[in-house]
Write a protein that binds this DNA or RNA. Structure first.
Lengths: 198, 198
DNA sequence: AATAATATGTATCGACCGATACAGAATTCA
DNA sequence: TGAATTCTGTATCGGTCGATACATATTATT
């Protein structure tokens, strides 16, 4: 028994995420967000709470629609080793096609999160570990199918692949160069017992 | 024919760097810097220019005294492959011993630098490439001494090691875990033809 | 000692920050 | 239709931001 919201919350969170993604938490004002979303500051506060919770909601929305979607889609439609290869390929293509060179919202947030926001840090750490878990599942599944030699430690290789992925995202932000990125990925895949050709 | 400066510029830049390192550019106010250095805002502006140039000077000071010093020291005193191993070991130990979990000032700055600061981005990209050049020199030298097999491409392996290093720095900021870090480094070193034991 | 030049400290500028009070518009339920 | 409830827009709050003007203190040169 009340007036319904006159804007699309999902679209709004996407616009908010893009603003935070490009300029960071401190570098984005609530007025910027209002202009970017086409709403008023009041509506934003009314719908999503204060700036901190708005940031977390936008980050979560980004993760759900981008990262988790990617993991789920690749893991379901491709063979284990192919899923890992495709994952890296998508990250590279995304990094190179973004003219704003925003890198990864999650990684940006990881470095933007100051020590005095422990719950945010914990949430980010959890999401990052989910990526590692994805690598680990693929590696173990690949071992069962015979695509990954049993001499490769899943724990070690998944940590290794995660580090390379995070490193790629830093490169994407500051200097996205295809040759460097593909070289790094190629070496990492070889080390994990995954042949390059897909 | 004038009054000499009554503070140590190097010490001041170190204090400034630590503040920016921990809280980022936008998250550190000029008043924070004044309190942290024990100076007045006026003195800071008088000696170093505005906030932007103060940031760049502090970053440069950090790089000269930490990163470049480390590269120079290791490259001069150790065998090529040992220099790489020692480099990663130092990074891991530093990451784990920092209770503030600040990660790497250079990497933090890389992600903090917005797209509308191209000269800063270029400077950061240049510094990052210097790390890759260090890896490359070590790999090529290691090949000459026979410690690195000639089947390892120096271009590919240096990009790979750089990605792992940057990834480690992200991990250090959000969740510094020794097991994950050492696993990632161990796999990367093996892939580069560098035996783990030092 | 006189003078020129620089450093320092206080006070303050205009702009922007996050956040909210308040009133009016809009919509659902009775 | 009437009333309760929620949303939206304007205006504004106190605080902090980066930056600077100004006066004073301090030092090197003449």
């Amino acid at each position: 028994m009340a007036r319904p919201r006159q804007f699309d919350e999902q679209k709004t969170l996407e616009a908010v995420a893009e603003a935070f993604w490009a300029h960071g938490y401190e570098g984005t004002s609530t007025r910027d967000l209002a202009q970017r979303t086409g709403l008023t500051v009041t509506s934003l506060y009314n719908a999503f709470g204060d700036k901190q919770s708005l940031f977390q909601l936008a980050l979560q929305h980004y993760l759900d629609t981008t990262l988790k979607e990617r993991i789920h889609r690749l893991e379901e439609s491709l063979a284990p080793t192919e899923a890992i290869v495709a994952f890296f390929n998508e990250v590279i293509e995304r990094s190179l096609s973004d003219v704003q060179q925003r890198g990864c919202f999650l990684v940006n947030s990881a470095l933007d999160a100051t020590p005095d926001a422990p719950e945010l840090r914990a949430a980010i750490a959890s999401e990052i570990d989910a990526i590692r878990a994805f690598f680990r599942r693929c590696l173990l599944a690949g071992r069962r199918t015979g695509d990954v030699p049993s001499t490769v430690s899943a724990a070690e290789a998944s940590a290794h692949l995660l580090a390379v992925l995070l490193g790629l995202r830093v490169m994407a932000r500051v200097n996205p160069d295809r040759a460097t990125m593909t070289a790094a990925v190629s070496a990492a895949l070889k080390a994990s017992g995954i042949s390059k050709h897909r």
